[in-house]
Amino acid sequence: MVNVLFVCLGNICRSPMAEAMFRDLVKREGLDDRITIDSAGTGDWHIGHQPHQGTRDLLDRKEISYEGMKARQMVTEDYDTYQYIIAMDTSNIENMKQWQEGNTEAYVGRLLDLVPDVQNKDVPDPYFTGNFDEVYDLVNKGCQALLQKIKTEQGL
């Protein structure tokens, strides 16, 4: 089983959007029995909350399920559980280091590091910008690239 974790600041906008979109993509590819997906935040402000209304509205329009998703904060054990830990921006990468003990074998990187034709590798936070459509487009590109990376590396 391949385990993927998406990480952003509060786990209510970008990372749950990526989680829901990646789950949908993985299911459409027939790999949902081989890949598990979760998301977490580096902050603790929204623990237990549903995704942001803007994320829910967008996912509803795209007919992508976010059922049962609740925000949680990243924990040290995530480095042992997940083979791919995917951050939304550079500050998330920096914040995640507080939970990393020793060396990890997980791939840790930004989602847009996998998309060569995108100049800015940080997914903007729609909590502050309000631009959920832009984030959807970027996350979609990143999820496509991530799935290709996983399929190649894991022989799926």
Rank of each mutant, 00 (worst) to 15 (best):
G109Y: 12
E105P: 00
Y79W: 14
G54H: 09
N92M: 13
A71K: 04
Q119C: 08
K27P: 00
V26E: 00
D57V: 03
Q100P: 00
N11H: 02
V115S: 14
D57N: 15
Q83W: 06
N11I: 00
P16V: 02
V75G: 04
T55Q: 09
S15P: 07
N103F: 12
L31P: 07
A71P: 01
L31I: 11
T104R: 07
I93V: 15
S91A: 14
E19W: 06
E19K: 05
T90F: 12
D57E: 14
D32C: 02
M74H: 00
L112Q: 10
S91E: 14
I86H: 10
H52S: 08
V118H: 06
Q73K: 13
Q73L: 09
G10C: 04
V115F: 14
R72H: 10
K62G: 01
D113C: 14
L5C: 10
V7N: 04
V26T: 11
R23M: 11
N103K: 13
N120F: 08
M17P: 00
L112V: 11
L9W: 01
M21I: 08
R61Y: 07
G102W: 14
L111Q: 04
T90E: 15
D60M: 01
G48N: 07
D60I: 03
E19M: 05
G30Y: 01
D117M: 12
K97W: 06
N120G: 05
L114C: 10
F22L: 03
V7D: 00
T81Q: 13
S15M: 05
L59I: 01
M21V: 07
L112M: 13
I47E: 02
E77L: 12
I12F: 01
D38L: 10
E63S: 04
G10Q: 02
V7F: 10
E29R: 14
Q53H: 04
Q100G: 03
E94M: 12
V7W: 09
R28E: 13
K70F: 04
D33G: 09
M88D: 04
N92D: 14
M88C: 13
R56A: 05
C8L: 06
G54F: 11
Q83K: 14
M17K: 01
K62R: 14
H52Y: 11
T36E: 07
D38I: 06
Q73M: 13
R34T: 07
D44T: 08
L58H: 01
G54M: 06
W45M: 10
